[in-house]
């Protein structure tokens, strides 16, 4: 295994409000992580935790305020040839009904990608290539030929969108909430596709989601984000099987269990995003059930415990909890 993507102290600051009452929100705050070849890496967290902003920075839609992104040994910001970059990194977005123009035929997106990246000049062979990629996601060219997005189901469209991203043979796929708009009955078939792509094409996937159950199901490693920080990261079995950070525990507890007997008993607090972003010290201290005085003043440091990185004052050394 080799590292294909490395984020180093990635930071993005947005300014909110008018000229006079300007507040700065650090949407992504010194985030570092790596993505290895042929693995599924999950970025998880609730809405407004900075996971999509991170993805947008990797895709080059946002310019990082500071920090670096390395692809193999290359700094992404210094890449002049964007096309070569997008040949390696492709994206699948949340809502398939929004990612396709309703007035354009679905197939035109496939041919456009083929032309843009000069993959194939001959139309017949281009069609063969498209057919091949569509079959990889369980569709046929015949099913989408001549059709508009409105004539396909959400599941079919999301599959098409994945098939299109495969045309350039990318080594990294960024999937931003790819299943949250897909029907429950078809959701697993899309999730299984990502697994299949990792296993048979060796594609790495950055899977962005708030749904920890599917994250556990497909990913190898996971990073839990909260208000711009990665609060816990490590192998998915360890992070979700044996959660350490109180926020990870909260997230796991919040998954609606498909079992009428197993329901959360405790009530939760719900705070507004902006309030938490501007908080000093640990950003989770406003909701944390195990909050201490120190949490409200000092931002916790990253601590490595059993191969898992945790950002919490409850943990100090390699032996686990020390301050109790």
């Amino acid at each position: 295994m080799s590292t294909i993507l490395k984020a180093n102290n990635l930071t993005k600051i947005f300014s909110l409000g008018g000229l006079l009452s300007r507040t700065k929100i650090t949407a992504v705050d010194h985030v570092s992580f790596t993505v290895e070849s042929s693995e599924i890496f999950t970025l998880a967290g609730e809405s407004g935790c900075g996971k999509s902003t991170t993805a947008r920075m990797i895709l080059g839609f946002e310019i990082p305020t500071s920090g670096e992104l390395h692809y193999l040994d290359q700094n992404i910001q210094s890449v002049k040839d964007k096309k070569a970059w997008f040949k390696e990194v492709q994206a699948v977005f949340q809502n398939p009904f929004e990612s396709f123009n309703p007035l354009r035929k679905v197939e035109s997106y496939f041919f456009e990608t083929v032309n843009n990246f000069h993959i194939e000049k001959n139309e017949k062979r281009a069609e063969q290539l498209i057919e091949e990629k569509l079959q990889a996601v369980g569709l046929t060219y015949h099913e989408i030929a001549g059709k508009y997005p409105g004539e396909l189901s959400g599941g079919q469209l999301q599959r098409s969108s994945i098939a299109r991203s495969l045309l350039t043979n990318p080594s990294l796929l960024i999937a931003d909430e790819p299943v949250s708009m897909v029907d429950a009955s078809l959701r697993m078939s899309i999730v299984n596709l990502f697994r299949e792509m990792r296993d048979s094409f060796g594609v790495s996937v950055i899977y962005i989601t708030h749904d920890l159950a599917t994250a556990y199901y497909i990913s190898d490693r996971i990073a839990i984000m909260f208000r711009g920080n990665i609060v816990e990261t490590g192998s998915v079995e360890e992070v979700l099987g044996n959660p350490k950070h109180p926020y990870t525990k909260l997230l796991i507890e919040s998954i609606p269990q498909p079992d009428p007997h197993q329901q959360p008993k405790t009530l939760i607090k719900f705070l507004e995003e902006k309030e938490e972003y501007l908080r000093k010290g640990c950003k989770f201290s406003g909701r944390c059930p195990e909050v201490m005085d120190i949490c409200k003043k000092i931002t916790p440091k990253d601590v490595l415990i059993d191969g898992v990185m945790v950002k919490c004052h409850l943990f100090k050394t390699n032996t686990g909890k020390s301050e109790e």
């Binding site: 599941g155 029907d183 009955s185 959701r187 697993m188 920890l212 159950a213 796991i252 998954i255 269990q257």
Partner: peptide, 26 residues
């Protein structure tokens, strides 16, 4: 059988066995 599919396809933490969704489309 449809309900069975809906319930079986739900992923759970701690279980990585392959889940199948309902075949075909609505």
């Amino acid at each position: 059988p449809y309900t069975q599919y809906l319930i079986q396809s739900l992923p759970r933490i701690g279980d990585k066995t392959t889940r199948k969704s309902v075949p075909g489309s609505p």
